[in-house]
């Protein structure tokens, strides 16, 4: 089972990208699970045509352990299993602890064994702001971390912080950095800037998404580009990225299994 975590600055397009990658891999016949790790609980919206999903934490809060997995794991486009960890409303509680609890609950309910996905994506809130947000890359969770960034300075800064956190976790048996995904925003010398960042962390740009209005057109339709505009250039770019990430993760999993 392949597990990958996607991090990046808030608003950079993580959920849109992850949802499109999930949809593309589902179209390839793979069983995909996408777990949103953000209190906003909107990671899988595009896969479910805008329909809200009961979050793991809200469900645990209401029912303790007396709930079925099917209450929090719902199928979206292409049979992608959609899960939202959820969390407290802004200004209250502890979102990081929430992520830990949500992922532990899924594990204790044997979600991975029951749904047996080929690949799981953890779509994680903007930054590794506390211990809880490192949960998706701890041992037993993701094997690879991908960071989505544009060439904008704040995005590069956030990506750098995330990459540094991943590096600091070396020795703990956590996920390693799989690479950077460049989500173009039309910044001058955009690729060059992100290449410098990649060099600083001894990694590479593993995928590149062009700036495209197709993404904006798909959003009000509450669909992924893969579903709404399957023949578009952007859909092709998402498919290419999805295939590439899958290959990288497959190689990592194969290496781990052989180790």
């Amino acid at each position: 089972m392949i597990k990958a975590a996607i991090y990046g600055k808030g608003g950079i397009g993580k959920s849109t990208t992850v949802s499109n990658i999930s949809a593309a891999l589902a179209d390839r016949g793979l069983r995909v699970m996408q777990i949103g790790c953000d209190p906003k609980a909107d990671s899988t919206t595009l896969l479910r045509h805008g329909e809200k999903l009961p979050t793991v934490l809200d469900t645990v809060n209401q029912k303790k352990d007396q709930f079925e997995l099917s209450e929090v794991c719902r199928e979206g486009y292409g049979g992608v299993i959609c899960v939202e960890a959820g969390g407290p409303v802004p200004g209250f509680g502890c979102a990081g602890r929430g992520i830990v609890t949500a992922l532990e609950k899924l594990e204790r309910k044997h979600a991975y064994e029951i749904y047996r996905p080929d690949i799981i994506f953890y779509d994680v809130l903007g930054d590794v702001v506390c211990g809880g947000f490192s949960m998706p890359i701890r041992k037993g969770y993701a094997q690879k971390v991908f960071i989505l960034t544009s060439g904008e300075n704040m995005s590069i800064y956030a990506a750098s912080n995330i990459a540094m956190a991943v590096e600091n976790f070396r020795g703990r048996g956590y996920a390693s950095l799989g690479g950077l995904i460049l989500n173009r925003r039309g910044v001058e010398q955009e690729r060059e800037k992100v290449e410098i960042l990649a060099g600083d962390f001894h990694t590479s740009i593993t995928g590149e998404l062009p700036y495209s209005e197709t993404v904006q057109k798909a959003e009000p339709l509450k669909k992924t580009v893969i579903e709404a505009f399957p023949d578009s250039e952007m859909a092709r770019a998402y498919r290419e990225l999805a295939d590439h990430l899958f290959r990288i993760c497959q190689e990592e999993t194969g290496a781990q299994n052989n180790a």
Partner: peptide
Amino acid sequence: TGIDFEAIAR
């Protein structure tokens, strides 16, 4: 605070 004890032990 979600400390990872297995990682600390490692």
